[in-house]
């Protein structure tokens, strides 16, 4: 078991190196630092001095891979690759284009992200599982057919409309909660209600439909017939036998996204003005702040791999059949 986890962690290293190389290629080789400087400074008629000054200010004035000017180890370390890419491995994200410490910003902004993402996940999970069980209990009746149509319709609606609709109904039409904004500490709750409701409703279509098909797949299995042959009631079969088995893919599906909750939701946060990592990323994209985008790419990859490892571990916990080697 521990050997298995160790091996998975070791396997993560080449993947992170790969991610790092891809980002390096994208951000520094496809377009040179000059190109970036020119774009930031406003396209045409930019003096070479201005470009040099911008590069020096943001630390892009080094050579890409090898520094002839420096000596010894510094000829490798005093380069863009080392300063901007390799240091990510130590979670040293450097500073953004407007001079703020990215690492500090991330540590501040992940909490509001979590404050939305965790309740959305939990409430959504509880609701979707209950609803799916309800549908499956009444399978092949009009409740089932109607619900499936409703679910397909719900998942055919873009998430943007859920947000716009939610804001319009609850905030604008009925003035129940503020449209957007955020507050420190416990006062944040009234700003969180709407995004959480919207997030949950937006996920019902795909979530419930998936769980329904998982339940139906389990119900067709032989052990369910055995359970019925014992004389168990349908409710008992559903809750004790089917639910337990279907929970395995459900839970492991949840575990894989757990670490990524830190990253927040791009759209929701920027719509509701929540100062989380999602809106941080969006702002960085629209301000073309590559330092932040680069950091978030790396952070996202780390969290994704963490999710994969956690998933493997969670399998051994919830599924008695899996013993890792």
């Amino acid at each position: 078991m521990s050997a298995y986890i160790l091996r998975r962690i070791l396997y993560a290293i080449p993947i992170l190196i790969g991610v790092n190389l891809i980002t390096f290629l994208l951000f520094f080789v496809v377009n040179s630092p000059e190109d970036m400087a020119r774009m930031h400074l406003g396209q045409k008629r930019v003096t070479t001095e201005a470009i040099q000054a911008w590069k020096a200010e943001h630390g892009y004035d080094r050579p890409l891979l090898y520094n002839d000017a420096a000596s010894g180890l510094a000829s490798l370390t005093d380069t863009i690759f080392f300063q901007k890419s390799v240091k990510l491995f130590a979670f040293q994200f450097g500073s953004s284009d407007d001079g703020r410490d990215i690492g500090y910003d991330i540590s501040q902004r992940m909490w509001p992200s979590l404050a939305i993402a965790v309740p959305v996940l939990m409430v959504g999970l509880a609701f979707n599982i209950s609803y799916a069980l309800f549908i499956v209990f009444f399978r092949a009746t009009y409740i089932d057919i109607g619900s499936v149509v409703l679910l397909v319709a719900m998942l055919s609606i873009s998430s943007l409309f859920y947000i716009i609709g939610g804001q319009f109904l609850l905030s604008k039409a009925f003035h129940l909660v503020p449209i957007s904004g955020y507050d420190q500490g416990l006062n944040a709750w009234k700003f969180l209600i709407l995004p959480v409701i919207v997030g949950v409703i937006g996920g019902i279509g795909s979530g419930t439909r998936w769980y329904r098909s998982l339940f139906l797949e389990e119900i067709a299995k032989d052990y369910v017939r055995t359970a019925r042959a014992k004389g168990l009631s349908e409710r008992f079969v559903l809750f004790r036998h089917v639910l337990r088995n279907a929970l395995i893919p459900i839970l492991t599906g949840v575990v894989v996204v757990l670490p990524l909750l830190f990253m927040g939701s791009l759209i929701t946060e920027s719509f509701f003005g929540i100062p989380g990592l999602g809106s941080y990323t969006i702002d960085a994209i629209s301000n073309q702040d590559f330092a932040i985008v680069r950091s978030m790419v790396f952070l996202g990859a780390v969290l994704y791999i963490l999710g994969l490892i956690l998933t493997d571990i969670s399998y051994t916990v919830v599924d008695p059949r899996v013993r890792l080697q």
């Binding site: 299995k221 032989d222 055995t226 359970a227």
Partner: peptide, 15 residues
């Protein structure tokens, strides 16, 4: 009572 052909799949794997 009833028993089935496939003992491999006829028991609930998680209980």
């Amino acid at each position: 009572g009833m028993i089935f052909q496939e003992p491999q799949t006829s028991l609930n794997p998680v209980l």
